[in-house]
């Protein structure tokens, strides 16, 4: 299953991924109108900074996901393809998943009283954030592909 990988050394903190994610999760699907919507769309990916290091936080599709284990209604579950998916219809907005996620990748949607998370833009060919990332710090690929790609990227001699 492909997922989103974040390569920290490539990120310069531009936040293009966040904006692209907001557009994708907006009603209007418009980058200009999105912020005027109610309820206002929230990004599923967030960039944080510590010293001059940036880190993008997005759902890691854990193999043994704490959010799935914590969910009392079964809204958080594993899809057949292997992703961690969230069914908003079953979500009661208890936000246990928000609390247990070690990355803070599950977003409390305050206005909708539901949890929200990255769904890998399943209906698109590529996730919007990955497309938006000009420095190619976000990769969308399978684990095997990642290993091949990453070997070519190693800066250190190893």
């Amino acid at each position: 299953m492909p997922k989103i990988y974040f390569r920290p050394e490539r990120c310069d903190g531009c936040r293009a991924c966040e904006l692209a994610c907001i557009e994708k999760h907006s009603q209007t699907q418009s980058i200009f109108m999105a912020n005027l919507e109610k309820p206002s769309p929230q990004s599923r990916i967030r960039v944080s900074q510590s010293a001059n290091q940036f880190a993008a936080v997005v759902c890691q599709q854990c193999l043994q996901a704490m959010c799935v284990e914590a969910c009392m209604t079964g809204a958080m579950q594993y899809s057949e393809s292997g992703a961690v998916i969230h069914d908003a219809k079953q979500c009661v907005g208890c936000w246990m998943c928000v609390m247990v996620c070690p990355f803070g990748a599950v977003i409390p949607l305050a206005e909708a009283k539901k949890a929200g998370k990255c769904n890998l833009c399943e209906e698109e060919k590529l996730p919007a954030c990955v497309l938006a990332c000009t420095r190619k710090a976000l990769w969308y690929c399978t684990g095997e592909e990642y290993e091949i790609k990453a070997a070519g990227e190693l800066e250190c001699a190893t």
Partner: peptide, 10 residues
């Protein structure tokens, strides 16, 4: 249709 456990965890 989803699952609550993944066998490969084991």
């Amino acid at each position: 249709m989803g699952f609550y456990i993944r066998p490969q965890v084991l």
